[in-house]
Computed example of a mutant assay.
Amino acid sequence: MISYQVKKGDTLAKVAYNNKVRITDLLFFNRDILSEMDYISPGTYLQIPEPGPVSHIMEKSACFYEYGFRELEKDREVLAESFVSEQIGTSRLGKPIWLFKAGQGKKKLFFSGTWHGNEWLNTWLLMEFLKVLQKKLNNKEKWYGIDIDGLLDQTTIYIVPLVNPDGAELVQEGLNGQHQYYNEIYKINQGFNVFHHWSANALGVDLNHQWPAGWKEEAASSPNCPFPRHYGGEAPLTEPEARAVYELTMKEEFSCVLAFHSQGEEIYWGYREMEPSISSKLAERLAGASSFKAVRTADSKAGYKDWFIKEFKRPGFTIETGVGQNPLPLESSVRIWITTIPLILESLTFPDFS
């Protein structure tokens, strides 16, 4: 048994993984101070048991602990030899919002993830996609029979894997007294210190309800003040995270966009019949690759995909990668990987609509 002092950014899953023990064992040996719902505070001392079997750690293509801005920074260094990364903006708390680019072709595809703080598994998914893509390119290997190297001669992939770093951090690590918006967030969350339900940014604005496409209608049926979810702000595009994606999209004029969320294994492809007629066929191709269900529209407006369709009249898709209550459990990562990677690769074969 060893004693471990918790560092900023630690979670139960990260401590368990790094010490090659199970979360259940960590909870058992620290049962006097921890429960499964607890966040662990920096400075706390935990008792770490002797390492157990590590077979669960060696499983392929699975996420074993929370993935946020700290993990992204480490992986950005790993990916630097193959892909360009560029900061396109900052969050409310000043965290960088990173863009990754792969390929050099004329056709531009845009993938984005973790618009909602409790959907951070999609950041892991997109970063893992880039890491495997790097290996495939280095080894000149096909992926699901697709010549990736050849495709990227005609295509440039743009990826913003973590649109909402502040919200993801709050979900994963909780709220401490040093937080810049401690009082505001504490009030929004009605005094509770559990944030698994939180999808907004650091000021209680839902970044996927920030877009000038039916914003007034959506606002009329949503919270009218900062809230953990669905509050669209005082006006469209008030939040720096949304502005960063807006400015990138206006600059690059993407051929097609895929915004990744994690609720329902569905593919939303329409917006008020403004989408091109081919969108339904493309959605069926994505559905066939992933086993997801293609659905024309969700019962909401003011989303990024809605605005993109309205603004450019090009195909846009909201991809819901998971099933269950957010944040999805870590074991969902295997299913998300297996079902979503073929969908992503299928989208690379779409025509150029620019």
Rank of each mutant, 00 (worst) to 15 (best):
I2L: 14
A13F: 09
A13P: 00
V15R: 00
T24R: 13
E36D: 14
M37I: 14
L46G: 06
I48N: 01
K60V: 14
E66W: 04
Q87S: 13
K95D: 00
K95L: 11
I97M: 08
Q104E: 02
G105A: 02
K107Q: 08
F110C: 04
W120Y: 15
T123H: 05
F129P: 11
K136A: 05
K136L: 01
K136P: 04
W143T: 07
Y158F: 11
H179G: 02
E184G: 01
V194C: 12
N201S: 11
A202S: 11
L203S: 12
V205H: 01
H209N: 02
P212V: 00
E218N: 08
N224S: 12
P226V: 02
F227W: 10
F227C: 13
G232R: 04
G233R: 02
E234Q: 14
P240W: 04
A242R: 10
A244V: 07
L248Y: 01
E252S: 00
H261N: 03
E275Y: 12
S279W: 04
K281Q: 13
L282Y: 12
A283C: 14
F292K: 04
F292E: 11
A298C: 08
A298F: 15
W307G: 06
W307I: 02
G322S: 11
L328V: 06
L330E: 11
E331L: 14
S333V: 06
T349G: 00
S354R: 12
